[in-house]
């Protein structure tokens, strides 16, 4: 079956449930620019508000958490003191590679309450995204030896604030495992200790395990898709 390419932006589960009828709608009324933009926003919304359990948040949290733990452990053992030039230079690329994964994991954690977004998630999600994106850009600057110490700490604090808000929302919904892990991740991210990077990675790894053990968004009870 050929469907409108914009419908391909929707999650696979969504397409399975709605693509046929949405395509029929688009056949009845071919979309203009505004409707196409509306579809693109709708696709983003569908990714952020699933009624099913998506696999990518767990995968992103596990891969990012393990990579971050590894880089943190290596940084702990490296002989260069924290106040010397070159500190963390070897591990920065690993942190950089793990960052987009943990950005995805943060977004994934924010979808754990399904279609219902508490205020803390609505506030925490954009703050975390801005923090993570700024963090990654500044980390690139640090890898290139451009220096980004203070702004990097500010970006990390923004990420931590966003993660903290999402963690609080999850705890408020009784999601103790993932919520608690995110709370710990947020707190250790702002602690300037040599062990905090490894602890941040461990917290995300724990979050991945908790998400795997306790899938949240429930399958719908009505409709064609169980």
């Amino acid at each position: 079956m050929t469907v409108d390419p914009l419908l391909r932006l929707y999650p696979a589960r969504w397409q399975h449930r709605y693509a046929t009828e949405m395509d029929a709608l688009l056949a009845d009324e071919p979309p203009g620019l505004r409707a196409r933009l509306d579809l693109a926003v709708g696709a983003l919304d569908a990714h952020l508000h699933p009624w099913w359990v998506p696999a990518w948040p767990v995968a992103a949290a596990a891969a990012g958490g393990v990579a971050w733990t590894f880089a943190g452990a290596v940084a702990l053992g490296q002989p260069v003191p924290p106040d010397w030039p070159g500190y963390l230079q070897e591990t920065l690329p690993v942190f950089l590679a793990a960052s987009p994964l943990l950005l995805l994991a943060t977004l994934g954690a924010s979808t754990r309450l399904g279609p219902w977004d508490p205020v803390a998630v609505r506030a925490g999600r954009p703050i975390a995204v801005v923090g993570w994106v700024a963090w990654m850009l500044l980390l690139v600057a640090a890898v290139a030896n451009l220096g980004a110490g203070a702004p990097l700490a500010f970006a990390a604090t923004a990420s931590a604030a966003g993660i903290l808000l999402i963690g609080i929302a999850l705890l408020g919904a009784g999601d103790w495992g993932a919520g608690g892990a995110l709370l710990v991740a947020a707190l250790v991210l702002v602690i300037p200790a040599p062990w905090s990077a490894a602890a941040f990675g461990v917290a995300w790894t724990v979050a991945a395990i908790a998400e795997l053990r306790d899938p949240r968004p429930r399958p719908r009870t009505t409709g064609r898709l169980a």
């Binding site: 949405m22 505004r34 579809l39 719908r220």
Partner: peptide, 18 residues
């Protein structure tokens, strides 16, 4: 105007809530 993305985002939630 009710865009197709908005329509189905709302339909999915209404169906989810029964």
């Amino acid at each position: 105007t009710l865009g197709p993305g908005t329509l189905y985002a709302a339909l999915a939630r209404l169906e989810e809530r029964g």
